[in-house]
């Protein structure tokens, strides 16, 4: 298993939200929408996660137009996509095994 696994729920959803170029507030809204309002990322949590993922090369800066004061946009990298794949495989294993106990009960 990859040393960075498991991903935190926040990191996992931020990566998915960055399948297309997105800025901070856009990520928060997208994650909120995907989880039916269950997960609302705090700005501090998101900022820290973005910087960590930039360092790890899982996401990269997509645009930064200082003159127009446009918001910084980020996008997932191929390494980031790989992390999502690894995590999805891990989650699938979890679901596969958890289903065993559900079947037992019935």
């Amino acid at each position: 298993m990859h040393k960075d696994l498991p991903l935190t729920e926040g990191v996992f959803y931020i990566l998915i939200a960055l399948r297309k170029p997105n800025h901070g507030y856009g990520i928060i809204q997208d994650v909120q929408l995907m989880t039916d309002g269950r997960l609302v990322l705090g700005a501090g949590t998101l900022y820290g996660a973005i910087n960590t993922m930039l360092d790890k090369g899982w996401i990269k800066l997509y645009s930064e137009e200082v003159a127009s004061r446009k918001k910084k946009e980020y996008i997932i990298t191929s390494t980031g996509k790989e992390m999502v794949k690894f995590e999805t495989e891990r989650l699938e294993e979890l679901i596969r095994n958890s289903k065993k106990i559900m079947e037992d009960r019935i």
Binding site: T8, E9, G10, L39, V40, L41, G42, A43, G44, T45, G48, A49
Partner: peptide, 15 residues
Amino acid sequence: GPFELYTDVDSQIKL
């Protein structure tokens, strides 16, 4: 609505 800057335990620990 509610206002939180740090919404998971990991980032709270870091703060």
